Computed example of a mutant assay.
Amino acid sequence: MNSRRDFLQKIAGSALALPVLSSFAPRELMQADETPYQGPVLRVAILGLGSYGERVAEAMKDCKRAKLVGVISGTPSKVKTWQAKYGIPEKNCYNYENYDQIKNNPDIDAVYVITPNGLHKEQSIRVAKAGKHVICEKPMAVNAKEAQEMVDACKAAKVKLLIGYRMHFEPKTLEIIRQRKAGEFGKVLFFQGLSGFIIGDPTQWRLNKKLAGGGAMMDIGVYSINGSRYMIGEDPIWVTAQETKNNPQKFKEGVDETIQFQLGFPGGAVASCLSTYSMNNLDRFFLNGDKGFAEMAPSTGYGPIKGRTNKGELEYPHVTHQTVQMDEMSDIILQGKQPIVPVDGEEGLKDMKIVDGIFLAVQTGKKVDLKL
C-alpha cells in the first residue's frame, strides 16, 4: 500500500544512524558514552500497533531514557507478536475495551497513541483519566475543539500531553532555528513549504473523512503548517487557501486532494505552502531573509534530512528521529526539560486552529483571521 509511511520510508533510503546529536546543542556532536545510564527511564506502552507504531518500537530499542514496556491493540495476534519480539509481559498487554485498567499498573508511565486521527481524542482522554502521561501522534485531533478537550482533560488529570513532533528534535532543523534566532538570515521575509505524495489504496483510513478528519492536509500538510511556525519563529495571524480536486471519486466530500494555503505573520513574513495527495517529490522547506536563506530537502522525511544555507551545506550525521524524540520526551516528562521548540498539547492545538482556518478559507474564499 502506498501511504505516507511508505513515502517517508523511501525518503529514509538506506542511511545508517550514526552517533546521536544533542537536540539542544545541534552544532556539538556527543562523543560515544559507554557509561551506563543511571537516570530515570520513561516506561511506555504503545496504543495502535500499525506500521508507524512498529517504527517507534524499533527506534526505542536504542533509547537510553525511554523503554517500551506495554502494548494496547484490538488485534490479539499483533499483541502476541509484539510480546515475543519486544519482551513485553502479559500483565502489560491490553485491548481497546480494557485499557482503562492501565490505571492499576504502576509499571507504565505513559501511553503513545498511534491510531487514526479520529480516534485520538477519545483514546487520549481515556489514557489521561487512567492517570498516565499521553504522547499523541500528530495531528493530535481532527479539529481545534477536540484538541482543546484533550488539553483540558490532561490538565484536569494532572498528566502531561505531548505531540509526536519528531522534527522538533532533528539536528539540522535545530541548527537552522539557531541561525535564525542569531539573526544570521536577517529579517525573515518568506517561507515555502511543499508537502505531498501520490497516495495509493483508496480504501485506506487516510481517505476516510471520519477517521482522518480530512485528506492530505491532515496527513502531510500539517508538516508545512508546523514547519512554517518553527522556521519563521512566529505564529501566523491570517490564512487564505484554495483547494483543487481532480479526482472526486477517490477524494470524497470532506477529503481534500490538494490545497494551497498562504499564512501571514506579525513580523511581516508570509508563507506559501502546498499540501497534496496527487504529486510526488514534494518535501521541501525554504526560508528567506534579507541577509540569507535556508533550504531543507528532504525536510520532514525519516532521513537523512538535507539542509543548506547561504553559507553552505549543513553537515550532521543522520540520527533516528524517533529514538531522539522518545529520549527527549522522557526528559520532558520525568525531568521537566524544556525543548527548544515545544511539543506539548498547546503546540498541537495551535496547528489544529490553523487547519480549521485553512478549511474555512477554502469554504468561504476569504481571508481568515487566526487567534492562536
Score class of each variant (00 low, 15 high):
117 N>W: 02
9 Q>S: 15
320 T>A: 15
177 I>H: 13
16 L>S: 15
204 Q>L: 03
257 E>A: 04
352 M>C: 14
22 S>M: 00
230 Y>Q: 01
158 K>L: 10
36 P>C: 10
355 V>A: 14
157 A>R: 11
49 L>Q: 08
364 T>S: 15
240 T>M: 08
194 L>R: 13
226 N>R: 10
372 L>M: 04
66 A>M: 04
174 L>F: 01
217 M>N: 13
170 E>W: 00
155 K>Q: 15
263 L>T: 05
246 N>H: 13
255 V>S: 02
23 S>M: 02
156 A>Y: 03
173 T>H: 12
226 N>P: 01
174 L>V: 01
314 L>A: 11
132 K>P: 02
25 A>D: 13
243 E>N: 06
343 V>D: 12
310 N>D: 15
81 T>C: 06
285 F>L: 10
289 G>E: 11
285 F>N: 12
229 R>G: 01
359 F>W: 15
307 G>A: 15
22 S>L: 01
29 L>I: 00
244 T>R: 07
194 L>E: 14
344 D>S: 09
123 Q>P: 00
196 G>A: 07
205 W>L: 04
367 K>H: 05
218 M>W: 10
189 L>K: 12
303 G>A: 14
200 G>P: 04
299 S>N: 08
360 L>K: 15
321 H>Q: 13
143 N>W: 02
122 E>W: 01
201 D>R: 08
31 Q>Y: 04
361 A>S: 15
35 T>F: 09
150 M>T: 07
37 Y>Q: 06
142 V>I: 15
63 C>A: 14
251 F>R: 04
260 Q>S: 13
254 G>W: 03
278 S>M: 04
167 M>N: 05
72 I>K: 12
81 T>M: 11
3 S>Y: 14
70 G>F: 02
306 K>G: 00
36 P>L: 09
271 A>D: 05
288 N>P: 00
368 V>R: 08
215 G>D: 06
51 S>H: 14
97 E>G: 10
317 P>R: 13
196 G>L: 07
199 I>A: 01
211 L>A: 11
339 P>L: 10
24 F>Y: 05
111 V>S: 01
268 G>W: 09
341 V>Y: 08
172 K>I: 15
281 N>E: 14
214 G>C: 08
63 C>V: 08
369 D>G: 13
99 Y>D: 03
